[in-house]
Amino acid sequence: MKTILAIDDEPMMLQCLQTTLEKEGFHLLVTGNPDQGIEILKKEAVDLVLLDVKMPQKNGFELYAELREFTEVPVLFVTAYPKALTPSSPVFKEIWEKGFTDGVTDIIYKPFSIDALLEKVTLLIGHADSD
């Protein structure tokens, strides 16, 4: 079974992701605290991170840079703010040119359909029970 870690400051979003993805056979770990997310990633075998971009404690891009220091785990950015993803931001430009080109990073915009979410997850890590 594949494990997905969702990091988002909205409890409702975490609940929605957990319910939807557990129904599809994934094991979900959830947290609203970015630093706790990093701790989980250091301890647990995680196959995919669903990462909110705009969180009060820490920007999703900063968190991405932190986790890339010790893991190549695929990341799906989940955001309601498409304008945050712009090449004029040097941090995002670097993420786009490395992570997105390597196929280990993707984006989905809130609100999204369950089908769209499952397509993105499958594209990054395959199905819950695949190798």
């Binding site: 498409p82 196929g103 984006i107 499958t122």
Partner: peptide, 27 residues
């Protein structure tokens, strides 16, 4: 598995063209 590799190949083309992946679905 082949379909996934195919989708990833298409994604790479879209990334190269700076296309917003959040607004597209690929199957």
């Amino acid at each position: 598995k082949n379909d996934l590799q195919h989708m990833r190949g298409i994604r790479k083309i879209l990334v190269k063209h700076w296309i917003d992946l959040g607004r597209m679905r690929i199957n």
